[in-house]
Every structure is written in structure tokens, then in C-alpha cells.
Simulated scan of single mutants.
Amino acid sequence: MRFGETDYQQAREALGTRLRELRFTCPDGRLTGAQLAELLGPGWTKSKVSKLENGRQTAEAEELRDWAEATGHPEAYGGLLAQLRGFESHIRSWRRQLASGHKPVQDAITAEHDRARVLTIWENNLIPGMLQTADYARHVFTRHANLIQSPRDTEDAVRARIRRQEGLYQPGRTYRITMWEAALRSLVCPPSVLAAQLDRLSSVMGLDTVELGIVPFAASLKIYPGNSFWMYDDRRVVVEDWHAELWLDDTDTIATYTRVWHTLRESAVYGADAQNLINTALRALNSH
């Protein structure tokens, strides 16, 4: 079963139920929500206590520690933190991940990449990070930081992404990359930057570590080109959405994404046909 939003909400509600149990079983007697908020101090309200207990808000780790101590159950903190980490390890909100900027996110992905021998990618609207030029990556990071309103560490993030591309030249690695033609044409950067990016795509097509396929707009599709995702060997899938990344590692989910990738791949073109699509996109840029 896929670990998605429903599972995430159920896990958050289970954590809230545990928090309520601690409030009800204080050594000196049950506390009301207002009493607990007063004990917890600045930044706490009866409403916040209610939201946490009913799974409508996710607690920070430090808030769980304060809750355990205020209810007289400091020994419960370890279990609470384990519950929180359990579901956060699957759904990683951009707000939390980008609290310190994009570079820590890049470092986390690099750790996964370094463990993998086969990286399987589907991209529906951007050039994959493994193939991005520095200028293209810079514009992508800037736009995402604007959206999430996160700290700007663009240059550090760009350097981290470009360093990861060293894997393209390491024997024993395989990059199976399939993208929709939209990725060749999305103007998430100035036309001149996209033109240089398309030239970069052409240059990596000759690498023996890279299998690059492009699904043309005109292709007959057996399944719609949904969210982008990355599969690290056969042990983990990372799926990107607007609010979060999903890190998924159960066997059934990985099997589903494997089928999706192979189904999309059936509509892709390779070699000279893929190069023709890149050239067509370049001519369209140059005609503007």
C-alpha cells in the first residue's frame, strides 16, 4: 500500500491520541487544554493543544519534549519522537526541509545517490537535476525558494547538485532517464539558458552510463505523465509534489512506480529520434 496523505494523516492523528493520553494521565490529575497551554508557556494556546491532539497540526520535536515534561511524563519523549520521525521520514514537507535552505536537501539526496548503482528517473516538466547546467539549476532553485519563501543558499545548492553529476562519469553506474517533451520546452529560465541546457542534453546522450529517452507530445500514451519521481535501485522511490517530497520504501509501492516508469518508457524515443526532438526544441527557441 502506498504511503500517502491518508497514511500521513492517520499517523499524525495517532500521535495526537498519544498526546491526549499523556494530558489525561498527569501524576497530579488530568489537565484541561487551557491548563496545559499555560504550563507550556509563550506560543501555546488551548487551540494549539487541540490541533495537535486532533491531528490538525504537526508538532516540532522540541514541542513534544515540552509536552512530555509538562504532563509529568518525561520518559514518554522518546516514544513520541519515534512516532514523529516515523511518518516524517516518508513525507518530508518543503517548509521543514527548506528551513535552512536548499543545500541540506541536496546533501540528503546525494547520500541516497551515492548508495545507488541504478538511478531510474521520470521527469514530466523539468530537465532532471542529474543533467542540469549550473545556470539552469540556479533558476530552478530561485523559483522554488520564491514559492516556499525559504532561505536563499542558491550557490551552495547549485554546487552540491553539480558535484553529484560526477556519478555520470563513474563506471558501474546506470542512469535510466525518461522525460516528457515538455521538459525540453518549459521556460523556467531565459531562452539562452534553456538553449545551453539543451546542448548539455545532447552531450550526455553519448555517455555509456546514461540511457536517455524522451516521450514526444505526439506519442500515444498508455498512462498520463504524472508526477516526477526517482527510484534508487529497487529500495526507494522519491516523489516530488508542491507541498512535500514522499520517500517511499515499501515493496508494493516500489513495484507500482517501476510499472509506471516502464509503461511511460514504452512511448519514449531514443538516440537519433530523441536528438531530433532536442533539435526541434532548440529551433523553436532560436526562432523567438
Rank of each mutant, 00 (worst) to 15 (best):
T251M: 09
H102N: 07
R173T: 13
T154M: 03
E123P: 00
A59T: 02
W44G: 10
S203C: 00
L282A: 11
K103Y: 02
D250C: 12
A111T: 14
G86R: 08
E240C: 03
A218P: 04
W67P: 09
I278F: 05
A195F: 07
P42M: 03
G167D: 07
R56N: 11
T6D: 12
H113L: 07
L277S: 01
L80V: 13
M205P: 10
W180D: 11
T133N: 04
P225K: 02
D28Y: 09
V158H: 11
N125H: 08
V49C: 05
A70F: 04
G72L: 14
Q9I: 10
S202Y: 00
V215H: 09
L40Q: 08
H73S: 05
C189S: 15
A272G: 08
T280I: 05
I91P: 11
P171Q: 08
M130Q: 10
T25N: 11
Q275S: 13
G4Y: 10
R138S: 13
G33F: 13
D252P: 03
G43P: 01
A183F: 04
W180H: 14
L39E: 10
N125A: 10
H139F: 14
L98W: 10
A195E: 09
A182D: 10
A61N: 00
R159T: 12
Y169G: 01
A268Q: 04
P74Q: 03
Q170R: 10
Q83A: 14
Y270R: 08
R96E: 13
W261S: 01
W247I: 11
D208F: 01
T154P: 13
S203Q: 10
W261C: 00
G206Y: 02
